[in-house]
Design a protein around this nucleic acid. Structure first.
Lengths: 337, 337
DNA sequence: TTGTAGGCGTTATCAT
DNA sequence: ATGATAACGCCTACAA
């Protein structure tokens, strides 16, 4: 192993016959350096294979040029068939890449892991922290914000002390559009399969369902799920059991809708003739389900990109970063409803 | 935002009425500190919410306590239905977690991303770098190693300058076991669906196939794939087309085997009666395929854990880290062959 | 057992 | 335009 000592600014300076300050200027692209000197310095940098020491640099600039995305989930869940995670990661990643910032992805599915993540952020490893898939009234975003660390959440944080800026989608609007579509087409016994009730997305979609049905004077029929396909199957069976006459179901995620489709098929119901099904997400695969899924499209990738952009502004010291940004949702009508 | 200044060692020292050195000792768990003083210091740390500045600490210790895992793939691929990635990440993660090191996951599917990753590592953001899913003769592992950065690869790196330690599985042994099982059960026209030929895993499994068949005096029948399910479907169709009399196929990944199963079903062939199918991986889902898949089990999670352990030893300065560690594979016989 | 002092590699503020 | 020089916050001999 060629463990040659890492060259320092000092070494480069000596070799180029200039001062450390000048080398620093060249390395950081200052324009106020004579061309000949700049060239000499660059040559020395090249020859020595000099790369600035990040620790030393951060110590004075207080910047690391890397930004964390914290997913309070196990790796198992993050790498499941739930396309939410790759979508948000891709969105965040593309925007950060364009800004030449390094994305540090951290999964924290356990209490211990969560604590490590906290220490990591507080210790100053990153310039800012983004959260997605937050559960319950997670104290971490507020805690980091209070320490002066830039924080942005995807999905409205339930705890707001201090209020941290967030990006979310219009859950209520999307749900309302879906239900109106069902009601307009004559459905009267409309059930729902909910998302996890410790997450804002699960909560708001259920609220939207209840509100819209109440306004329409229709009864509610609710079964609990957790966004996964399996929970969709189980919930659909339960619903069928509790009310065999139901004629529509709104699932709070595409995966659960796929599960419902399967359970309905197993129960001998035709979709959409007997039961209409609407999901929420609009993953690619929903175009190819049998039948193709009518669903509420939420712009997950765009949410990721937006979150990253807000973070960049926050880090840049922009004083008027919006406290919240709500992205529109849209009903995509296909064959299942 | 309560952007109160981050407290420093100095502040804690003043508050506790001791010197910075003493605070440093307490914070780093030195035993040579009087109990009363230690308590006073801890109290001050608590009250001030002191957390050591990572940059300052790294600057002198030359350690960051975080370790990168580089996946030269796009997020799309990493978050596909290929369970290789979650398995290796979980393995690495669990071992690192136990050692209280932070895993920094970096995907680099583009040239630009790759360059950023390189800079990140060279700049000293991490104590070491692990690679998985390496394509071709990737120069980066060697480059980092030459700079004195601890490097471990999952899968034998094709370029060996300087040789970087790696962890791999016994591809040849597994393939041989699979083919012998087929030959023993009377199969004579045994085809293979290969993995990508720019990856060692793809290469070695094909070599194993060729070698074993040649020794057995049987003809080879090869179609190219890239480990994905779709490529398995396409390759199987092609094979059927080129030799309708084939009676067995060895796919270099479970996903491709599942694709082959599907293609065979579409072509009206029964498995295993008409055509026997063997995969490579032994993902959980392969127990539930139709029919359940006979496959070569490779211990991916264990490979991840082993890689992490070797990395930890490397970082610890252990002089005799094995240049390579080969984990055993095992044929799991189910119904498809 | 505790404190003093020097240095880690940069950047940034001054002069020059 | 360039060069001294002082931080940045921490660790660690070495002294006391």
């Amino acid at each position: 192993m060629t463990t040659r000592e890492r060259p320092t600014l000092e070494a480069v300076a000596r070799r180029a016959g200039v001062s450390r300050a000048t080398v620093s200027r060249v390395v950081n692209g200052s324009t106020t350096v004579a061309v000949t000197i700049r060239e000499a310095v660059n040559r020395a940098v090249e020859e020595l294979g000099y790369v600035p020491n990040q620790a030393a640099r951060s110590l004075v600039t207080r910047q690391t040029d890397s930004i964390a995305l914290i997913l309070p989930e196990t790796a198992n869940r993050v790498f499941s068939d739930d396309l939410f995670f790759p979508a948000i990661i891709r969105g965040v990643g593309s925007e950060l890449e364009a800004a030449d910032k390094q994305l540090v992805l951290m999964m924290a599915g356990s209490a211990a892991g969560y604590h490590r993540v906290e220490r990591y952020a507080v210790a100053g490893h990153v310039d800012g922290v983004m959260f997605a898939s937050i559960h319950g009234a997670d104290p971490l975003p507020g805690l980091l914000a209070r320490r002066g660390i830039p924080v942005i959440c995807s999905g409205r944080p339930m705890l707001a002390e201090p209020p941290v800026p967030y990006v979310d989608v219009d859950h209520a609007g999307g749900v309302a559009a879906a239900l109106h579509h069902l009601i307009t087409s004559g459905r009267r016994r409309i059930a729902t399969i909910t998302g996890p009730q410790d997450m804002v997305a699960g909560l708001e979609r259920l609220t939207g369902y209840r509100d819209t049905l109440r306004t329409a004077g229709l009864p509610a029929l609710v079964a609990g799920g957790d966004f996964t396909r399996d929970s969709g199957v189980a919930a659909m069976r339960e619903l069928l059991d509790r009310d065999p006459t139901l004629d529509a179901v709104f699932a709070a995620s595409d995966l659960m809708a796929h599960g419902a489709l399967q359970a309905l098929r197993d129960a001998g119901r035709r979709v959409p003739e007997d039961v209409a099904v609407i999901g929420f997400d609009d993953f690619d695969i929903s175009r190819y389900s049998d039948p193709p899924l009518t669903t509420v499209r939420q712009p997950i990738g765009e949410a990721g990109r937006t979150m990253a952009r807000q973070m960049l502004r926050l880090i840049g010291g922009d004083p008027d970063v919006e406290p919240s940004l709500i992205l529109p949702t849209e009903l995509i009508v296909r064959s299942s409803a």
